Simulated scan of single mutants.
Amino acid sequence: MSLERPVAPDPYELLPAAGSFTVTSTDVTDGDQLALTHVHTSAGGENVSPQLAWSGFPAETKSFVVTCFDPDAPIVSGFWHWIAVNIPASATELAAGAGAGDGSLPGGAFHVRNDMGSNDYVGSAPPQGDMVHRYYFVVHAVDVEKLDVEGATPAVVGFNLAFHTLARAVITPTYRH
């Protein structure tokens, strides 16, 4: 069963221009299908956030925000899988599983509620037989040490990022169930 809809545009092309830097991962590859490790348990996966490392960000970076967004979800707003906020500028990596919501983020970083309603990483689980979904794992270099967004929605975090993002690093694996 395909929902037969057009592919959504790259959501980051719709935002104010920002610089770029590099994000790499030992777990996910741009354009390749996610391993079951990073897929939600409801789709037969293990629901573990992937390892991400970044470099080449602007010298004036004061913190990072890491997000995972699926613009191909069959809803107008897309689907937020992960929002980790206020990661210290000294951090250049999140280990696999850092999205567990168990306090394993560095410094005073915290998770904002995802679209499943939990404060952690939620793996991909597109509808069975749907089109290939893209998962935008983005590291945002931010010009302030802390965004005042505790208890906020992903939309509020995104609104704040529109005014505080110096640069973005993007890696976009896919998944089809």
Rank of each mutant, 00 (worst) to 15 (best):
M1D: 12
M1N: 01
E4Q: 14
R5M: 14
R5N: 12
R5I: 07
R5C: 01
D10C: 01
P11M: 12
L15I: 00
A18P: 07
G19Q: 06
S20F: 00
F21L: 11
F21I: 07
V23P: 00
V23Y: 04
S25T: 02
T26V: 09
T26R: 14
V28H: 02
G31V: 05
G31R: 04
D32P: 00
Q33I: 06
Q33E: 14
Q33F: 12
L34I: 09
L36Q: 10
L36W: 00
V39D: 07
S42N: 13
S42V: 14
E46S: 15
V48I: 15
V48A: 03
S49Q: 08
P50Q: 06
A53L: 06
A53H: 03
A53S: 14
W54M: 06
G56H: 00
G56Y: 03
P58W: 05
A59Y: 11
A59L: 11
E60H: 00
K62N: 00
S63H: 09
V65E: 04
V66I: 03
C68M: 10
F69A: 06
F69G: 02
F69P: 04
D72P: 02
I75L: 14
I75S: 13
V76G: 07
F79N: 15
F79R: 11
W82L: 14
I83G: 01
A84H: 02
V85L: 04
N86M: 00
N86D: 15
I87D: 04
P88R: 12
S90I: 04
A91N: 09
T92F: 04
L94K: 06
L94W: 09
L94V: 03
A96N: 05
A96D: 06
A96T: 10
G99N: 01
G101T: 05
G101W: 07
D102F: 07
D102K: 13
P106S: 10
G107C: 08
A109M: 02
F110C: 03
H111A: 07
R113S: 14
D115S: 03
G117R: 13
D120E: 12
Y121D: 09
V122M: 12
G123K: 06
A125Q: 14
